[in-house]
């Protein structure tokens, strides 16, 4: 049991070191503010009614198409470059769904009189630099010059949505994220099951194999929410795993203290109770356009 304690200590040490290294990154000018929702009006240029309306429209758009469009307004860039700040914002917020990269940001810096549309990889086909540039030039800035921020933002966001409409359709996997376990967690999960099984049924390997073949798919389905094809594979895996575990437990004397003698506490990520908005893990490559008024 001493070596598990040692491993735990070492793991703790490595974790601390990792945190130290991660923490020593250079501090950048002008922090990216918190993602409050789809409308982040930190400069206060929108009327409350417009902000609410936009939030609803963008929320419905994401529900239907999974595409995430977000507005950020800041009072000032504090000397930061518009393009640099914009990219840092989308990298921090990870707008768009993972793998689809269907996120876009409309950034407005009020006192600098600058704005930018930042486009995720997945939307670059439709919301090209050219289209983004036209939206800024022909749709948004004429309204901004009149001082009508509400109308400019509404028209601009509408034009962005029109440009990408139909590009993506929301599916189950984009609505419900974190489905299925990751391979690492699954491996640990099966090791725990097999070692327990092995200890209990050490004397009867074939029974262990049978129990493994039944229990593994059942656990897989209940705890990890895996599909039918997985169930089949798990049954085979469980059979072999049970057999091996029992044989191994037999060979090592069938002691009740296993190597994996911790608690089998296993949860497949947090779900439920979360009603806020967050980016889906999309990535950006600097596409889009900038402008000013």
């Amino acid at each position: 049991m001493h070596n598990t304690l040692l491993i735990k200590k070492l793991a703790g040490l490595f974790l601390t070191l990792t945190l130290v290294f991660l923490g020593s990154r250079p501090i950048q000018a002008l922090e990216v503010p918190a993602l409050k929702g789809r409308v982040n009006d930190y400069a206060g240029i929108l009327s409350p009614a417009t902000a609410r309306q936009l939030e609803d429209v963008l929320k419905n758009f994401e529900t239907a198409e999974s595409t995430q469009i977000v507005l950020l307004t800041v009072p000032s860039l504090d000397g930061a470059s518009l393009e640099d700040f914009s990219l840092r914002a989308v990298e921090a917020w990870k707008l768009g769904q993972k793998k689809l990269d269907n996120g876009a940001l409309l950034l407005i810096a009020k006192n600098d009189r600058k704005l930018r549309i930042e486009v995720g990889y997945g939307l670059e086909e439709k919301l090209t630099d050219l289209v983004s540039g036209r939206i800024i030039r022909d749709i948004i800035t004429p309204r901004f010059k009149e001082g009508n921020f509400d109308q400019g933002v509404i028209d601009g966001i509408s034009a962005m949505m029109d440009a990408v409409k139909g590009e993506f359709v929301a599916t189950d996997s984009t609505r419900r994220q974190n489905r299925g376990g990751d391979p690492g967690a699954m491996l640990i999960f099966f090791l725990v099951i097999f070692s327990i099984l092995g200890r209990i049924l050490a004397r009867t390997p074939w029974l262990a194999a049978g129990v493994g073949a039944v229990l593994t798919p059942v656990f897989g389905a209940l705890a990890l929410g895996l599909g039918s094809l997985w169930i089949l594979a798990l049954a085979v895996l469980g059979f072999i795993g049970g057999l091996i575990a029992a044989r191994m437990a037999n060979a090592t004397g069938g002691s009740s203290h296993g190597y994996w003698g911790g608690s089998g506490g296993f949860s497949s990520g947090s779900s439920g109770g979360f009603s806020g908005f967050s980016g889906g893990g999309g990535s950006f490559g600097g596409g889009g356009a900038s402008g000013g008024w």
């Binding site: 393009e83 540039g133 490559g285 356009a289």
Partner: peptide
């Protein structure tokens, strides 16, 4: 339009 595209491309190169 071309200017927008060129700026966008320069920005992509930077990134």
């Amino acid at each position: 339009d071309l200017q927008n595209q060129l700026e966008g491309t320069e920005n992509r190169i930077n990134v």
